[in-house]
Design a binder for these strands. Structure first.
Length: 298
DNA sequence: AATGCGTGGGA
DNA sequence: TTCCCAAGCAT
């Protein structure tokens, strides 16, 4: 890609960000734990929701150490409203791993971060940059979209991470990465991008050329009575969260609380969901004297 | 590598 | 109302 164009794009987007960038609590800290928490919460989750839950979670678990010591069900309870509950389980496992194997400090190397549960390529790079100041890109869905529109030819024949790495201005990696998030989320949106007010439209080969249609996946996710299993899973965890003192529920009672018209013929289906949740370490299953019991995993 | 995994606000 | 979506990860 052209060096000259890059310089212009840097200036335009960074100055746009200075004027229009949003202010979030995780942009006002470099505490690795706080950066980590924000990045996990932001996985597939709107910033507006994270903005609401993030301070509450931090109040409950102010440090990685306190998180590592907590009962798991209390972590899952603090995750209420966030969705993708596996993230809460992995986050606490990460806290335990770091306390045990890294002397309580998050590693700063991307390669080591990558080995921790719940952390993939995006999150490891985000932490390396936002917590430890490294000049690395953080390619999320926004960044991927913005770069592929600005550099359509290059992005077809090269890995987007390589392009992103070259596009990072080494002295301003933090602001650049954050700027691309806000720019992608508010101007260079997936559908109907606002090219008319785009600060880099004069450099962009894709300007005014994006049609808004996205092909949605043909395959249907597993469901029962038209409702995806994923939704029932969420209901199960939410019902268990609301039990005082992490009490247990019988299979049939639980069934009636998560599905209208729950019948005996649903029990095999429900048991399968519960076994998946058990495998994910979100719930624990025990055999009571007269019934099969379910509670949040300890 | 295709699939599964939540939630609540907005179109 | 119904549908779509939003800072990925693990298998």
């Amino acid at each position: 890609m052209r060096k000259q164009m890059l310089l212009s794009v840097h200036g335009s987007i960074l100055s746009w960000y200075k004027q229009h960038g949003r202010s979030f609590p995780w942009r006002r800290t470099r505490d690795p734990y706080r950066i980590l928490l924000s990045e996990i919460m932001l996985q597939q989750t709107q910033a507006s929701r994270v903005e609401e839950k993030y301070p509450l979670f931090l109040k409950r678990f102010p440090t990685l150490a306190s998180l590592s010591r907590a009962a798991k069900h209390s972590v899952v309870r603090a995750w209420r409203g966030m969705g993708y509950n596996n993230r809460a389980v992995r986050l606490q496992q990460l806290a335990k791993d770091v306390m045990r194997n890294h002397n309580g400090k998050l590693p700063r190397a991307v390669d080591e971060l990558d080995l921790l549960p719940g952390i993939g390529k995006y999150t490891s790079h985000a932490i390396a940059c936002f917590a430890f100041g490294q000049p690395v890109p953080a390619v999320d869905t926004n960044v991927r979209r913005v770069l592929s529109r600005l550099f359509p030819l290059a992005s077809k024949r090269r890995d987007i991470w390589d392009i992103a790495q070259e596009a990072v201005p080494p002295r301003r990696a933090y602001d650049w990465n954050q700027a691309l998030f806000d720019f992608g989320a508010t101007i260079c949106t997936q559908r109907n991008p606002k090219c008319d007010i785009c600060p880099v439209k004069r450099y962009c080969p894709s300007a005014f050329r994006i049609n808004g249609k996205i092909a949605k996946p043909a395959k249907r996710e597993p469901a029962r009575d038209g409702i995806p299993n994923r939704i029932y899973r969420g209901r199960i965890v939410e019902v268990l969260r609301n039990l005082k003192g992490n009490r247990a529920l019988s299979l049939s009672t639980l069934g009636k609380r998560i599905k209208s018209n729950y019948r005996l013929r649903d029990s095999a289906w429900l048991r399968k969901l519960l076994q998946q949740l058990e495998r994910d370490r979100l719930v624990s299953l025990t055999n009571g004297s007269s019934a099969f019991l379910v509670r949040l995993a300890k």
